[in-house]
Amino acid sequence: MLHPLIVEPVVRAALLEDLGRAGDITTDAIVPADADAAARIVARRDGRVAGLGAALTAFRLVDPDCSVVVEHGDGADVPAGGTIATVTAKARALLTAERTALNFLGQLSGVATSTRALVRAVAHTRARIVCTRKTTPGLRALEKEAVRLGGGSNHRFGLDDAILVKDNHIAVAGGIRPAVEKVRAAVGHMVKIEVEVDTLAQLEELLTLPVDVVLLDNMDPATLARAVALVDGRMLTEASGSVTLDSVRAIAEAGVDMISVGWITHSAPCLDLGLDM
């Protein structure tokens, strides 16, 4: 679970964006200030819950005295029609926070649900599903937690926690060897180094260098299997590029250690949810 100090500023900013300059003028005109109500957060289809903490933070920021009963918490599988949580609060607070809460919960549960599907597809292999930095600006910590709740693992959180030498770095450096030599000289012993290769010839050169992980980019399963055999356990292998639910099984069966997937954070379909008063 993410620390509240990480979650609250993100949710507060989202509420302020929605409240604008005058607040919820529709709800304030219709609903008495002293009216209480209860509402169920309901899943319209099956999915893996993620982002419930952010959703409930939205309600609590608008009504600090609200009470919550959770039936399917973060990391749980909820069936279609199932209740995720019931929130009792001022009626105005429920209606004002509704869209912000469901936006977070639907988006993040969609990430977790998509991750879950990929993880299940490769469960018979050693491959782990990992996310990338292709995240919604401002929501990276929340989306990466959703990946973990879906059974996946996290790649880099930012540019500063590991070295990833990609094709453009290699082009600017003048080749794989000078690129690796430069980064190895620049970082401390605690920093891992990963290098992207597009061909088996590049991989053979990389195997002579002090590298921790190789990113095998846009290789078909047969080529991936040859690459894994060449590496022979000397470094971790990561496959990326054109990974779908249909293709992920064959990629995993090539023997790679990790499969990185950008769309589980940038294009995962939201889990359909509703707030039933």
Results as ranks from 00 to 15, higher is better:
M1C: 04
V7F: 02
V7I: 15
E8D: 10
P9C: 04
R12H: 09
A14V: 07
L15T: 04
L16A: 09
D18A: 10
D18H: 08
G20L: 07
R21Q: 12
R21W: 12
D24G: 06
I30V: 15
V31R: 01
A33L: 05
D34K: 02
A35K: 09
R45M: 12
R48P: 11
G53R: 08
A54N: 08
R60I: 04
C66Q: 08
V68L: 02
V68W: 00
E71W: 10
A76G: 12
D77G: 14
V78S: 13
G81P: 15
G82W: 14
G82T: 13
V87T: 13
T88R: 15
R92E: 01
A97D: 03
L102R: 01
L102K: 01
G106P: 12
Q107P: 03
S109V: 00
S109M: 06
H124P: 08
H124S: 15
A127P: 04
R128H: 14
R128D: 11
V130K: 11
C131S: 15
C131N: 15
T135N: 08
T136H: 11
P137D: 10
P137L: 08
R140S: 14
K144A: 08
E145R: 14
A146Q: 06
F157V: 07
G158N: 03
L159C: 00
A162D: 01
H169N: 03
I170R: 02
I170C: 02
A171F: 02
A173T: 06
G174L: 02
G174K: 05
P178Y: 04
A179F: 02
E181S: 10
V183G: 03
A185T: 06
V187H: 09
G188N: 09
V191F: 11
I193C: 03
I193G: 05
I193H: 07
E194F: 08
E194H: 06
E194L: 05
E196N: 05
E196I: 05
V197D: 05
T199A: 00
L203K: 03
L207I: 06
P210F: 13
P210D: 13
V211A: 02
V213I: 15
V213E: 07
L215N: 06
D217Q: 07
N218K: 05
D220Q: 14
A222K: 13
A229I: 00
V231S: 11
A239Q: 00
A239E: 05
S240Y: 10
V243Y: 05
V243S: 01
S247G: 12
A250R: 14
E253P: 13
A254H: 12
G255P: 13
V256L: 11
M258T: 09
I259N: 04
I264Y: 12
D272P: 13
D276R: 11
D276G: 02
